[in-house]
């Protein structure tokens, strides 16, 4: 099997055996991505309780926000804003619980040292988590979006499908990049980082304008658009998905927000890579990679 990167090749010394070709490195990392994504994708079919707890119940939560607007007799497009926001919470929750906090679980379970001892890049492990997480969250987001759209009669008016799809995927990439940055904190810290990620849930919902146009927050909203992928992505998607609605002014047009997302993606992914390297080095020096339950 000459095409197999893992085929045995006789070498003169252990040092020579340890010198991998670029192809071997790439193949190993791709296998790592697939291997780490596998339990998340396969797990969807293994335990069915998530259908109730992660699809039906979040749909009811989104419904609660819809009924707040109905109680206030808000214009119908606001119901659409809530539905879109409700669908996107799936990704943010996944980033917080299953990306940012994941290395802490791995540390507590004794897997983290195995990751570092294995001949693979830790970034590949995080990418695998992200890919698996996106598949998990997409199913929940899609159900919330479709069911809520049908039940509450949301009408989308999309003029630029390509840009909408581009913004959606850019938002996911930037979000999971941010998740990787947060995950790297757990190489050094324990419960401090855990509480930080928990702290990011509701406050981020608020400043991201999950249930209302973020432009209404004024300066705080502008800051959120500059820093949080959820805020800028959601705002762009709302502008694109409800093109006929009287959208409040105050935020950049979707094309500009797409560019902001591109910048965020590059920054977060580069920052994550740098932080993982730096914090891994620090954690090794201080012996924190194997400290559990701190």
């Amino acid at each position: 099997m000459s095409g197999n990167a893992y085929v045995h090749r006789p070498t003169a010394s252990p040092q020579a055996a340890a010198e991998w070709t670029q192809r071997q490195i790439l193949m190993t990392n791709l296998r790592t991505v697939a291997g780490r994504a596998y339990p998340r994708v396969r797990g969807l079919a293994r335990e069915k309780s998530w259908l109730f707890f992660e699809i039906l119940l979040p749909f009811l939560t989104t419904s609660a926000f819809v009924f707040v607007y109905r109680a206030l007799q808000a214009p119908p497009e606001y119901v659409g804003f809530v539905v879109l926001g409700g669908a996107m919470t799936a990704f943010w929750l996944n980033v917080i619980w299953m990306m940012a906090s994941q290395l802490w679980w791995e540390k507590s379970q004794g897997n983290l040292e195995l990751y570092f001892a294995a001949p693979m890049d830790i970034v590949a492990v995080l990418l695998g988590m992200a890919v698996g997480g996106m598949v998990m969250s997409s199913s929940r987001a899609a159900v919330v979006l479709v069911v809520a759209t049908v039940v509450y009669g949301v009408t989308f008016a999309v003029d630029q499908w390509l840009l909408l799809l581009a913004v959606f995927f850019l938002t996911l990439t930037a979000l999971y990049g941010l998740g990787m940055v947060l995950a790297s904190l757990f190489l050094m810290w324990g419960r401090e980082a855990y509480h930080l990620t928990q702290f990011l849930q509701e406050p981020v919902y608020f400043v991201s304008g999950l249930n209302f146009p973020v432009g209404r927050l004024g300066m705080l909203g502008a800051l959120a658009i500059a820093l949080l992928p959820l805020a800028v992505g959601l705002d762009a998607m709302r502008q694109l998905a409800f093109a006929d609605a009287a959208y409040p002014v105050g935020t950049p047009p979707p094309e500009v927000e797409a560019l902001i997302l591109v910048v965020m993606t590059v920054v977060f992914l580069s920052l994550a890579r740098w932080m993982l390297r730096t914090l891994e080095r620090l954690a090794r020096r201080e012996g924190r990679l194997t400290i559990r339950w701190q």
Binding site: Y69, L72, E202, Y205, F206, F212, R216, L217
Partner: peptide, 20 residues
């Protein structure tokens, strides 16, 4: 950390009310 969560939830609803 303890008060940020409930306070943010309240602010979400307050802003929703103000928007309308």
């Amino acid at each position: 950390y303890s008060v940020a969560k409930p306070l943010s939830t309240t602010l979400i609803f307050v802003v929703m009310i103000e928007v309308i």
